[in-house]
Design a binder for these strands. Sequence first.
DNA 1: AACTCAAACTTGACAGTGACAAGATTCGGC
DNA 2: GCCGAATCTTGTCACTGTCAAGTTTGAGTT
Lengths: 192, 192
Amino acid sequence: MGKKAGYHHGNLRAALVEAALAILEADGLPGLTLRRVAAQAGVSHAAPAHHFPNLQALLTALATIAFERFTQSMARARARAKPDPESQVRAAGRGYLAFARSHPALFRLMFSAGDLDWQDQALQAAGAAAFRQLQEISAPFADLLGLAGETDRRELERLIWASAHGYAHLAIDGKMPATGNPPDVARFLSKR
Amino acid sequence: MGKKAGYHHGNLRAALVEAALAILEADGLPGLTLRRVAAQAGVSHAAPAHHFPNLQALLTALATIAFERFTQSMARARARAKPDPESQVRAAGRGYLAFARSHPALFRLMFSAGDLDWQDQALQAAGAAAFRQLQEISAPFADLLGLAGETDRRELERLIWASAHGYAHLAIDGKMPATGNPPDVARFLSKR
DNA sequence: AACTCAAACTTGACAGTGACAAGATTCGGC
DNA sequence: GCCGAATCTTGTCACTGTCAAGTTTGAGTT
């Protein structure tokens, strides 16, 4: 509905983000330059400056979107799974990995060192929402394991996050199988 | 002795690597440029080309050294620890994390996506040696857990690697506590 | 309905990057 | 002692992000 109207002037910001996402999918992070983004959006090389003061700001906007989709990927997987703690942990892990595998460049961007502005409110919120998914599946699982102490529960949370994150990272770097499920933390931790 | 002799002509390759390591520690990956490396080594901007055909080759050499030090970090930690499987797993995890925390830029470089030439023999060897450390601690621990099937043993190996890797990555990104130990996989897996 | 003015966009420039092409230099082997 | 070849320098190119100016456009006010 009509938000696309007006090109010479229009909703450039959204067009830039869309163009950047397309380039990212096609050529990865190194292929993403402000000038290419501008060109693909049909504007001059300095046009983005009015919507994003610098490259980091554009990357931050992209990462924010990425975190939102990432959260959705975990939420979708969880919704399809059974509600018991073990299944939920497994599902979140699959959602984590699925996003990384289908959008490796976005995933790398989300966790790239200094390229992002973590002072940005929207990015912080999107990141926190993603982390909340992990807290939501971790707590019931800690109960199942009978972990009472806060320290133990936090440690379990970190272990679940770290293993999912590490596996995803190694997988998109070709160090883990390109298909198949991640190691089943839930099974290893609960059985026996 | 005296390998340093001769400067106008000399052992430039080693000097370049040393300069690059210094810059990496000081300013991180984005601060590392061929021209700065050349300047710090006291040669012209095009001098590195004869020793490293392109930037990727230099980064690959750096990553190779990084993997060697990384392996040593794990080996040192293991040597200081008791020989039982649990302690060895814990120690390797600490060594993994210790290296990442004290050389974050090198660690990131080692696992940076397309910046490295994994066809390079030296890099492959150094990477394999590091991975071997994980296999060495994983096998006895699998025995301890009574895992017989090859699939299960491989899955455990991957879980240990992934959790160590993920925690290290998240730690140097500020998403995990800056000090303290990683989650104790060995304890979670064996107790109860 | 005309006018103003700020926002959006363009053009142009600058320092810095990696890579390449030629030249200059210096060392090692005969 | 001298010649060839490896090493290093100088110069240049296309490309990058960022800034400083101009130019266009559209929305709000009177």
